[in-house]
Amino acid sequence: MCYFRPLIIAAGLILLWQIIVWLTGAPHFILPAPADVAIAWWTNHMAILGHAGVTLLEITLGLLCGTILGVFSALVLAYFRPAQRWLLPVLVASQAVPVFALAPILVLWLGYGIASKVAMAVLIIYFPVAAGFFDGLRRTDPGWTDLARTMGASPWTMLLHIRIPAALPALASGLRVATAVAPIGAVVGEWVGSSAGLGYLMLHANGRLQADLMFAALFTLAIFAVLIYFVIDNALRRALPWQPDRSTLQKEE
């Protein structure tokens, strides 16, 4: 049942979509029927998958760099008090600027290639990862650190054996948020200026009134985004098996 539910929901939505097309009689360049989109996908599937590969690469690189940068910043923020005083306001202020506003500048500086899109994705991914991990590092159970101190822990072993493992669940939730928003960065980057990627394909198809191709690209993007989230979420669950979903309840017992 659990595996069929998404399929049933998808089938229901497609049916609803077809009914709307029938009822409104909208022209196919405004709202194409599901069958038109399927045909458009099939005739262009090599191009769509090629563009999807580019977008996927941008998202993956963005996640990788954003996570490394976020984890590193969180460690610096947690361990150097001056960094907290000087860097934290900058970090928060940087989030006040909409990433979309930065897209043209990044394209100007980094060009029409993949670099500006990866940079966009990094900008979006960085904050939830850094904020989540930093929060986790700050909120180590004081009982654990007390125990470690009576056991003669050095600052380094305390970080390695207590603080970092204790903060991993917080890092994981930051990563989940980051994964969910990562495609935004890549696609916005592609809209502003690029020659490849699903965002580029959608803009291109839109300009030629190829609504069916645009929808085909949109659905491909949605499926890829869900797949990435699923893969990351699964990997995180496997990596942190001690973190059951009911842990907060257990603590209250």
């Binding site: 654990w144 056991m151 050095s154 072993t157 054996h161 493992p165 204790a166 991993l168 001690w242």
Partner: peptide, 18 residues
């Protein structure tokens, strides 16, 4: 520590002192 098994928790002190 929830991420360590019972044995890992017992040897925690030694690991913290390297």
């Amino acid at each position: 520590l929830p991420w360590l098994d019972a044995l890992g928790n017992v040897i925690l002190g030694q690991r913290l002192r390297s």
